[in-house]
Design a protein around this nucleic acid. Structure first.
Length: 815
DNA sequence: ATAGGGTTAG
């Protein structure tokens, strides 16, 4: 079934849009005031009629004065009209004040000028003056005033004007009622607008369009589309014109229905609206928002004339569909062709810069913002903040934020998320508290940002608090918030709580499923991850590339090599998803981690694309676990050909050599790091105690309980050694034996565990968050600690979770 | 006719 707009397909092309669609101009001056012909036909009067700009007007002015026409009513009215038209309300006011005869048309022109160039109060003040001068108002005066109220979203003043209008006997006027419908619609009161509309004895096209666009602009796109159907069905029905089309295209974009959109396009085509820029621009926008960037571009390319708005719609269309390069190319072309970018252009472009991490262009746009005088536009600055955060320059973003005079909720949200995504968790949380102190109410966006920060921090107590906060503010029902909460619980070690929340949700996005599947995977619950994925396949939410990344890595963490291979095939065969470099990396990890090193190498050799850093990194990691120096060196050679600046890979290689006691090679890696200026990320562990998060760096003695902790570790080491623990001193070289053990003892993770044991009562589970991967000695030591101390210890490292209990770890010793 | 901030993986 096709959309009813198509109902007219058999009939010949309709005539051009009815004139009712064009805003009705007031009657001409000659109609409303009697003007004697010698004045009306005066050459200067004709010149004034032809006048097209302020510059020309100033050229004509001396003639008017020279010919003594200044005090002629016609000239006064015309001057007031022209001055207001070209934006000089001051000059218009001078002429008006000087005029002897101030009649209604004269007042009307001034009123019109006020509605355009000054505040609503000035316009209303001017109406009061008109009344004071005993001029009888006409319907046009009210239409302008109502429009001014609507544009200022001021219902209260609008209602006062409405009362005046009734007082002067215009309540039955179709025009007046339409203006009132428009007032309510623009002020977000579509319900009231509709009531008024429903009471009208007769309705013209303009009136229908007003109420339709009211619904479209107030988040009720379906109602808007229904009304378009009704307007045609009604007796003596109205045919949608270009204005109707332009108001329902955004509605169509909002419901994302390409089918309805295409039928509207057909209607546009059959009715000859294809020559109208605004219609075509709305079509471009609709196609882009429905995900069809290619069709959007076709329509865009076929436009005879374009405006900035058309370009903005296309740039934004590219950016929102992930075609960042195309967005930036079009933006460059736009500048080359001499268009002046608007705030909308800037915002879409900054979005594209941020997502594609193009900070050079981002900074160029920043300069442009200042040149264009948009530096104090909050929305633009918010976009700048986001762009800098996405490009990992939180410092610049923070500076912009601090200097922002009128921060909005969006500014706070952008900043908090920026901190959260750049590892500045504490800054994110303090800003959240700060906005709380300033009495700014958080919304769902805020909750997502804070949950993201807490997920990173991995602290269950605060996680529960923010969950409670979301419930109390009813924000937990939002899919985005709920998904962020599921992810947060999983990342805080509470997978079962995460699953409970997941089961309670009635609307789930792909990301929700992905977060849960990955949660299971990182905890080593491969079986649960696979089961949930199978459940997902039965439902209506389609798995995406990230889903497969999560499933494959879940298989990898649990040693399900064949299952993982099957899923890798499935994603291509059944879901037509092209594996990315990350997928290949995950596959190498899957095969290699299970010890099938030559098979993993074989897999790399058969890759259809040139293997990236992560692929060789996974291979090297597997070789380190399984102590295969030969293959590890082979992987490292390839890896370092790609010149990584990531310290992690270097450390991995050095550790592999150290495990094999190849000290010269270890030293070589160290030299390479020094030469490249790469520093080893210091190991850092976090532990939460009541309301405080305690941070420990390797070897640090800065914690107030430091002495106690080291003393306790001495005793602890003796106990676990008695239980069978042997310190892994093999991987430490060029220091004496007793120093080796001291070095091992001062690993951040052991400090954090000791602190946790010292400060919690027997039986309490200890949660640790570590920034790097758990080292081999810490892993063994923690297993023994869990045994002798009878404690459950949960350690989250950069990749996954380790649940230590009764001397064993959930990861089965491969990590 | 276009409009700023959002969840997953690495």
């Amino acid at each position: 079934m096709s959309f009813p707009l198509l109902a007219s397909s058999g009939t010949p092309p309709a005539p051009p849009p009815p004139t009712a669609a064009i805003p009705r101009p007031p009657p001409s001056l000659a109609q409303r005031v009697h003007i004697p012909p010698h004045i009306y036909k005066h050459p200067t009067a004709i010149l004034l009629e032809l006048c097209n700009s302020m510059k020309e007007l100033h050229q004509i002015l001396p003639q008017i004065i020279k010919n003594g026409l200044y005090n002629e009513h016609l000239f006064e009215t015309k001057l007031v009209s022209l001055f207001t038209k070209y934006g000089s309300l001051n000059d218009a006011t001078k002429v008006f004040d000087f005029a002897k005869l101030k009649n209604e048309p004269m007042y009307h022109t001034m009123l019109k000028g006020h509605t355009h160039y000054s505040s609503l109060d000035c316009s209303l003040g001017f109406y009061a003056r008109l009344r004071y001068d005993n001029v009888t108002p006409v319907i046009y005066n009210f239409n302008y005033l109502l429009k001014a109220c609507a544009d200022n979203f001021d219902v209260l003043k609008g209602k006062q004007v409405h009362a005046q209008l009734i007082l002067h006997g215009f309540s039955d006027s179709l025009f007046a009622m339409t203006s009132v419908v428009n007032l309510y619609a623009k002020c977000g009161m579509v319900g009231d607008a509709y009531k008024m509309f429903d009471r009208m004895p007769e309705r013209d096209l303009v009136c229908w369009n007003t109420v339709i666009s009211g619904y479209a602009q107030n988040g009720m796109p379906k109602r808007a589309l229904e009304l378009v159907v009704r307007m045609q069905e009604e007796e003596g029905g109205n045919r949608p014109d270009s204005v109707t089309v332009v108001s329902i295209l955004p509605a169509c974009a909002a419901i994302g229905s390409l089918r309805v959109g295409k039928s509207i396009h057909g209607y546009v085509f059959r009715n000859g609206f294809e020559s109208l820029v605004n219609v075509l621009t709305a079509l471009v926008d609709m196609y882009a928002k429905c995900g069809s960037v290619d069709i959007a571009r076709l329509v865009f390319d076929r436009m005879d004339s374009k405006t900035v708005v058309s370009l903005n719609a296309m740039i934004d269309g590219y950016a929102r569909n992930g075609y960042y390069d195309e967005a930036l190319i079009l933006f460059r072309r736009m500048l080359d062709e001499g268009y002046k970018p608007t705030n909308v252009t800037i915002m879409s472009t900054l979005h594209a810069c941020g997502e594609s991490k193009n900070i050079e262009l981002g900074q160029y746009v920043h300069e442009l913002v200042n040149q264009l005088g948009l530096g104090s536009n909050v929305a633009v600055v918010n976009s700048l903040i986001s762009m800098y955060c996405k490009c990992q320059r939180v410092d610049i973003a923070a500076e912009l934020f601090e200097n922002l005079k009128e921060r909005t909720l969006v500014s706070w949200n952008a900043m908090i998320l920026g901190y959260a995504q750049n590892g500045c968790v504490m800054d994110a949380l303090t800003h959240f508290c700060e906005m709380h102190l300033q009495n700014i109410k958080p919304d769902s966006f805020t909750m997502v940002s804070v949950s993201t920060a807490l997920a990173e921090l991995s602290v269950l107590r605060q996680a529960k608090w923010i969950h409670g906060f979301s419930v109390r503010t009813c924000l937990d029902r939002n899919v985005f918030v709920a998904t962020a909460l599921v992810d947060m619980y999983a990342k805080c070690g509470a997978v079962h709580t995460a699953r409970k929340l997941f089961d309670m949700m009635d609307d789930r996005h792909v990301t929700t499923w992905n977060a849960m599947i990955d949660g299971y995977g990182t905890h080593g619950f491969g079986k649960e991850a696979v089961e949930l994925f199978e459940e997902m396949r039965k439902g209506h939410v389609k798995p995406n590339d990230i889903t497969f990344l999560c499933v494959i890595s879940a298989c990898s963490h649990s040693g399900f090599v064949e299952k993982g291979r099957n899923y890798f095939a499935l994603m291509q065969e059944e879901y037509s998803l092209e594996p990315s470099m990350d997928h290949y990396g995950a596959m190498v990890d899957l095969i290699g981690r299970a010890g099938r090193l030559s098979e993993a190498w074989n897999f790399i050799d058969n890759m259809p694309i040139s293997p990236g850093l992560n692929v060789y990194g996974a291979m090297l990691g597997a070789c380190k676990i399984h102590k295969n120096v030969d293959l590890g060196e082979k992987a490292a050679d390839k890896l370092f050909d790609l010149d990584p600046d990531d310290g992690g890979y270097h450390v991995l290689l050095a550790n592999m050599y150290a495990t094999a006691s190849m000290w010269k090679k270890v030293a070589k890696v160290r030299t390479m790091m020094e030469r490249k200026g790469i520093q080893k990320t210091p190991g850092c562990s976090l532990v939460d105690l009541r309301n405080e998060v305690h941070t420990f760096y390797s070897g640090s003695t800065s914690h107030p309980q430091s002495e106690k902790i080291y003393a306790y570790l001495e005793k602890l080491f003796d106990r676990i050694k008695a239980a069978g623990y042997i310190p892994d001193t093999d991987s430490i070289h060029d220091v004496e034996d007793n120093v080796q053990e001291q070095l091992l003892k001062s690993h951040s993770e052991k400090l954090a565990i000791a602190f946790g044991l010292l400060n919690t009562s027997a039986g309490t589970t200890i949660h640790i968050r570590k920034n790097l991967r758990v080292c081999g000695d810490c892993h063994t030591a923690t297993k023994y600690i869990s045994l002798v101390m009878k404690r459950e210890i949960i350690v989250r490292d950069m990749h996954r979770f380790h649940h230590f209990k009764d001397g064993a770890c959930s990861c089965g010793d491969y990590w």
